[in-house]
């Protein structure tokens, strides 16, 4: 029978804390940047110009249909060789995760916009609004309400995806945990603790998503 010894991890508490801080900070950065990428790509999907539609389609599918881990390694190791652009592990991590998240956000944003009844745009146009203003004043405010729950879900997935950056030696929670595990020879305790930390951060967030879904559905 295995004897658990979590006490031996106490001296690594600052390591775990800094790892958690990096994981949370990284998530905030990639959610914000990913939403920007997703908004641009999602709107481009609805553009009149076929070139824009085609480019955004290629971007979305390239990132949706390849594994994130492969993308991370590719951006960090392959891209510098192909283009000569060197990037730090941090840059590669933020860039890849943002673009990866953006491809999923884009589909949520596009779907939210097209779900708004065509009569809404027509009513705005009939008042004399330009299409741009119709989008901003009439369609987006209604569409965003529908997008919020799936966007929050996707962001929760993004939080967990950040654990993959440890392969690039970005000192996130998992990476710091690996350091502690090697030091203490207590991998069972370390990985259990890491799982618990992810869980503790995300459970309240999922509760907020549930509540927001209910709240938003009520006002429909």
């Amino acid at each position: 029978m295995y004897v658990w010894d979590f006490a031996s991890l106490w001296s690594y508490r600052w390591l775990f804390l800094s790892g958690t801080g990096i994981t949370v900070g990284l998530t905030i950065a990639i959610v914000v940047l990913g939403l920007l990428a997703g908004l641009v790509a999602g709107l481009a999907q609805l553009s009149r110009f076929s070139a824009l539609r085609w480019i955004s389609w290629a971007y979305i599918e390239a990132f949706r249909c390849t594994p994130l881990l492969v993308q991370l390694l590719w951006f960090y190791y392959a891209l510098p060789i192909l283009t000569g652009i060197e990037m730090t592990a941090w840059t590669a991590a933020v860039l890849t995760l943002s673009l990866y998240g953006g491809s999923f956000y884009a589909e949520i944003i596009r779907g939210g916009i097209v779900s708004i009844d065509k009569g809404q745009s027509e009513a705005g146009l009939a008042l004399g609004m330009t299409p741009r203003r119709v989008m901003r004043r009439i369609v987006l405010p209604q569409a965003i309400k529908r997008m919020i729950p799936p966007l929050m879900n996707q962001s929760i997935i993004q939080f967990k995806n950040t654990s993959l950056v440890s392969v690039l030696a970005v000192p996130d929670l998992l990476y710091q945990g690996q350091v502690a595990a090697m030091d203490t020879y207590r991998p069972l305790e370390v990985y259990s603790l890491i799982a618990v930390i992810y869980f503790v951060v995300l459970v309240p967030l999922t509760a907020i998503v549930k509540r927001s879904e209910k709240y938003l559905a009520r006002s429909d």
Binding site: D117, Q120, E122, A123, G124, L125, A126, G128, T130, P141
Partner: peptide, 19 residues
């Protein structure tokens, strides 16, 4: 848009802005 602003339109399904 400018041309449309000179006419008012009323739709079969109202199309009021729900928000």
């Amino acid at each position: 848009a400018r041309f449309r602003s000179g006419t008012g339109m009323v739709f079969q399904h109202f199309n009021l802005f729900p928000h």
